[in-house]
Deep mutational scan, measured.
Amino acid sequence: MTEYKLVVVGAGGVGKSALTIQLIQNHFVDEYDPTIEDSYRKQVVIDGETCLLDILDTAGQEEYSAMRDQYMRTGEGFLCVFAINNTKSFEDIHHYREQIKRVKDSEDVPMVLVGNKCDLPSRTVDTKQAQDLARSYGIPFIETSAKTRQGVDDAFYTLVREIRKHKEKMSKDGKKKKKKSKTKCVIM
């Protein structure tokens, strides 16, 4: 069974824990209790493949930012979460993405942009803004509501699919490099 290491990042209060708990335990946590770091595991079937999701729910508070490099190193894919009623959390996505790329030393890291709290009427981040940002990053965008469960499975499952595509691409690139290195030079 394939294991996928997913990391949920975003500013404090955007609903990272609520999304994760909704996926794992099928219930909505409405009281806000700032996370330092929590880890969850769940076995699911995605596109006919049974897999184990190892999900790291991270601290959004700035005082825990020193811990970010460590979990970013171990993560295979990242859910970059903002709240649709919090423009600052949307603007912060850029910083999370840049930090992930720096730590992973790669421009090509599996990510999904997630606009959470889409059940709320007080939207300050337009869907088109988020779609445009995701398009500019070359990553999928999904709106979710941890409260109603809308888009929750889709967000995590899409990230797994992005990781699969990335692994497939990397193995193809690896095979191309191996083929090239088999060419021999004969000096007579």
Rank of each mutant, 00 (worst) to 15 (best):
V160M: 11
Q43T: 13
K104C: 15
R164I: 13
Y4C: 10
V125I: 07
A155S: 11
S65W: 05
I21N: 02
V125G: 09
D132P: 10
E162Y: 07
S17R: 00
K169Q: 14
L52H: 09
K128P: 05
K172S: 12
E162G: 08
G77F: 10
R68C: 14
F82C: 10
T58F: 02
Q70S: 13
T2W: 07
Y4I: 13
K182Q: 15
T35S: 01
S65C: 05
K179V: 10
F82S: 11
D173A: 11
E63D: 12
E76N: 06
L53K: 07
D108W: 03
D154G: 05
L133Y: 10
L159F: 02
T124V: 07
R123E: 10
D92Y: 04
H95P: 14
Q22H: 05
Q129R: 07
F156H: 13
E98C: 04
D108N: 05
K180N: 10
Y157Q: 11
K176S: 12
Q70G: 09
R73G: 12
E98Q: 07
I21W: 04
E107N: 08
N86K: 10
T127W: 05
S89C: 09
Y96T: 07
G10R: 00
T127K: 05
K16W: 00
V152L: 10
I187W: 09
G138W: 03
E31F: 03
L19P: 00
K169G: 10
V8M: 09
G15T: 03
D108L: 05
D105K: 13
V112Q: 01
T58Y: 01
L19Y: 03
K16C: 03
D57I: 00
L6A: 06
V125Q: 09
D173M: 05
E76V: 11
I163R: 02
E168C: 04
S65A: 07
T127P: 05
T20D: 04
L56N: 13
R73Q: 10
V81C: 07
K101A: 12
I93N: 04
D38G: 00
V9L: 14
Q129P: 13
L133R: 04
P34C: 02
L23G: 12
I36R: 01
F156L: 05
N26E: 11
K175H: 11
G15A: 00
A83F: 02
A155I: 12
K178Q: 12
R102C: 15
C185S: 13
V125A: 09
M111S: 02
Q43D: 12
V14H: 15
E98R: 14
G60F: 01
R73I: 08
T158S: 11
G174R: 10
E107P: 09
L53D: 01
R123L: 08
Y40W: 02
A66N: 14
Q131C: 06
G48R: 09
S181P: 14
N26D: 10
V103A: 08
D119K: 05
R68M: 07
L159A: 05
V7M: 10
K5V: 02
R68Q: 14
V9Q: 06
G151N: 13
C185Y: 03
M188G: 13
V152M: 10
I36E: 00
I46N: 09
V103S: 08
A66E: 10
D132E: 06
K42P: 06
A130K: 07
R161E: 07
M67C: 12
V125L: 06
S145T: 08
V45P: 09
C80W: 03
Q131A: 06
D47M: 07
V112C: 08
Y64N: 15
A130W: 14
I163F: 04
N86W: 01
C118P: 14
L23P: 00
I36D: 00
C80R: 00
G138I: 02
G60P: 03
L120M: 09
L23M: 13
L113G: 02
Y157P: 09
F90I: 09
H95I: 03
E62H: 07
V44P: 08
E98S: 05
G75I: 11
D54T: 01
C51G: 10
R164Y: 05
E162R: 07
T158G: 07
V7K: 05
T74A: 12
I55E: 00
D38N: 00
V9P: 04
L79G: 00
